[in-house]
């Protein structure tokens, strides 16, 4: 019993140390990315394309729905409570600070995180990693760094689009249901917007992007030999990314309060 617990603790510690080492190596290699951009830039562009551009429709749909519901319901309920200006505060807090980064992170995890893990896992099984290493290229630098930068950049941009559709697009949807002046809406929104809201939103999307990319790449590279390892690692990658994002969210909220 004691031996089993000790073995479990030793293995967990070793795995955690390996993950930290992988993360630090990836961060270090990211700083040298500019020097190696001849090869990695194309991978980066494609990663932003797959992660950002192709997820735009889903993000737009969700943020439009959430924003429109908030505006319509807020316009109906908040004047009854004697504080109609609270609508702008709610919109900013829900869309910009809280839901925007988190919903975007979940979508990216489900779409791109799982795809990265599967792709890298299959590359390991088909011995492509050995091929890279045989010609003197570090596969983590070559494959991991563009994905880290690409996912993080796409995460930040998608968060901006979530705000764009959630704050402006939803106004247009809500305008058909219960019309009210755009100028008044924009003035109210901007006057309630705090610089801390903008910073918080950017910090969250940046941190979530790093977490998703690192976790996805780590689990992709952790595949050894069997094809059956790929779905297992993909599932673990999605779960770990979501839990990591939620923990990071709590830490950031507490730090910026």
């Amino acid at each position: 019993m004691v031996t089993a617990v000790g073995r479990w603790a030793r293995l967990k510690f070793a795995e955690f140390s390996e993950a930290i080492g992988f993360f630090l190596f990836l961060i270090k290699e990211t700083f040298f990315f500019i020097q190696k951009r001849r090869i990695g830039l194309r991978v980066l562009i494609m990663q932003i394309f797959f992660t950002g551009v192709e997820a735009l429709s889903v993000i737009a749909l969700i943020s439009l729905g959430v924003g429109a519901v908030l505006i319509v319901q807020g316009n109906n309920i908040l004047p009854l409570l004697g504080n109609p200006d609270l609508l702008y505060q709610i919109l900013i807090v829900v869309i910009m600070r809280e839901m925007g980064p988190l919903v975007t992170a979940f979508i990216i995890t489900a779409r791109s995180g799982s795809a990265i893990t599967t792709e890298l896992g299959n590359m390991v099984i088909s011995h492509e990693m050995e091929a890279y290493m045989s010609v003197g290229i570090n596969p983590i630098s070559q494959l991991g760094v563009p994905r880290l930068i690409g996912v993080t950049t796409a995460m930040i941009l998608l968060n901006v689009y979530f705000n764009l559709f959630g704050l402006l697009g939803s106004y247009m949807v809500a305008h058909f249901i219960s019309p009210f002046p755009f100028r008044e809406y924009m003035t109210g929104l901007v006057m309630q917007m705090n610089i801390l809201d903008v910073i918080s939103s950017f910090i969250k999307s940046f941190v979530f992007g790093i977490i998703i990319a690192v976790v996805s790449c780590y689990h992709g590279f952790k595949v050894n030999l069997a094809v059956t390892e790929v779905p297992v690692r993909t599932i673990r990658s999605i779960g770990t990314s979501i839990v990591g994002c939620i923990i990071a969210d709590v830490i950031i909220i507490t730090a910026l309060r």
Partner: peptide
């Protein structure tokens, strides 16, 4: 046209941030 699409994707986001 992935490069151009990604470029537009980034520019529109930056313009929105700038506008706000």
């Amino acid at each position: 046209y992935a490069d151009r699409i990604v470029g537009i994707f980034i520019l529109v986001a930056l313009l929105f941030v700038l506008f706000m």
